[in-house]
Amino acid sequence: MHLSPSSSRVSAPAAAAPKLRVEGVSLHYPDGKGGHVVALDDVSFDVPEKQFAVLVGPSGCGKSSLLYLAAGLNDVTSGEILLDGKPVHGPGPDRGMVFQGYTLFPWLNVRENIAFGLKRKGIPAAERREIVDHYLDEVGLSKFADSYSRHLSGGMKQRVAIARALANDPQVLLMDEPFGALDSQTRLQMQKLLLRVWEKSHKTVLFVTHDIDEAILLGDRVLVMSARPGRIARELTVPIAHPRSMDQVMEPEFIALKRQILDLLHPTQDTEQDAE
């Protein structure tokens, strides 16, 4: 399963070069008793350009850890993370991220939040305004441009976070369970919104979730992780064409894939009723 020696992959033709490559990445956390916990163990996978890749796995299997490494917010213990073939060192605007918790800057209004990265890049005010207006419209928050985060619902906050990340036009968008804290109704709306936005932009996305429906609905490819230590157990391609819609969760391909993932995540459990 794991292609640990890197030489075999590097020789692949340049045209097929992945946008994001995770190569033999391991991550140890100190356990506070002088030893360490293995959070990730020799994880390797590629995300080709314009692909929506989804990581699923049980809680605590290292999904967030992996995303933080890709973002450059933490250092690998061993292995390498490459963007366009170049190793990443530290965080940068080429890898945008939407976090598991709410991370809007509460002292800035929605518009200023979305403009944060653009301002750092030195984009002139007029152009900035145009870009912000575009993404406000994309996430349906034009009316809330001047609101502050304390007046926004959880779903709205995550929409701003998505707009903020997209406005910066990153090479890769990393999303860590962005809808994990939302109620199921809002979650559905957010999934629809993200599908629509992605089908227009075709960003390279690495999306983390532990909701299997969400993984199949959004992803082109699903990477199933196993826990303790975190490893990629299987890579699955989602055979459903775009544009996608919510109704497709009832289709046989969808259900078959869902059963396959459920079996990987809970090998001993009977999945009959879950798959219904």
Partner: peptide
């Protein structure tokens, strides 16, 4: 994660200090 968000938006350490840590 407020600092992390700023970093992934291209903020430098100096701007994280002044634009995020200070107001927060």
């Amino acid at each position: 994660d407020l600092l992390n968000a700023a970093y992934t938006l291209g903020a430098t350490r100096a701007s994280v200090t002044w634009q995020v840590l200070a107001p927060a």
